[in-house]
Amino acid sequence: MNERKDFYIGYIDDVSPATKKFLKRTVLILALVILTTAAIFSLSQQPFANSTFELSNETKISGVYHKSPYPMLRVEVEKGVYKNILLLGFGKFGANMYIDALKAKEGTLINRRLTIEGNLIYYNGKTLLQITNEQKITLEPERSSSKTDLASVVGDFELEGEVVDPKCYFGVMKPGKGKIHRSCASLCIAGGMPPVLVTTDSNNISEYFLLTDLKGQPIHSDILPYIGQPSKLNGTVEKLEDWYVMKIDVSNIEKLNKNSEIY
């Protein structure tokens, strides 16, 4: 036993008192390191947005379908007040596959009344609906008398912000923006979700702009190099009730070498 003093051999149960004392002290220090690092890494996280994704809860929403140019449901929330709910698909896909399947059976859906059962996503006054199955879209028999031309021109603007995919940004992921989320946002927009420009002013008020090309058509793959990084965009802004639409030339987007300021 004496010759083993202070020489540790793992497979021998006996340990010298000096080694035992040293190990106890080391374990205590390691425990403090673990506690300190857990606290530092946890408490240093930036605040998460209070956005919501109702993954386990399905809600039925009825409204008038329109595509401006991304699929939306126009819902009357109170008399004369409308909300446009952006429709999205399951996973990292847009809603077009479900809408197109119904369209193939029923003909054009524009300005028709639909009831859709899906998962709500909402944040900061905007609501989106995830459709998981075309069977959960019901075409209502009555025709809508809703007006079809909803957009009005606001003017030409130069805006600084970040292009995000709305599904993750408005609730599915936290954070749903910036470099960490960039790959996911690229997949979502490549999969048919609308790109959305988010701007935040000095008073921390955010505005959201659905991005289209100059002709008002959807853009997806062309905008992928600009997603998830602060950028400057120029274009004509239209107001679509509770949303803005911005018509842009993707080649004029300027990447800004600075930290993201949105949320």
Binding site: I34, A38, Q45
Partner: peptide, 25 residues
């Protein structure tokens, strides 16, 4: 024990001070 302690402290502090996190994050 150390791994569990780290995970529990990290999760506990996050839920206490930054509760809007998602479970995946």
């Amino acid at each position: 024990a150390f791994m569990l302690m780290y995970l529990l402290v990290f999760a506990g502090l996050t839920f206490t001070f930054n509760a809007q996190t998602t479970i995946e994050t």
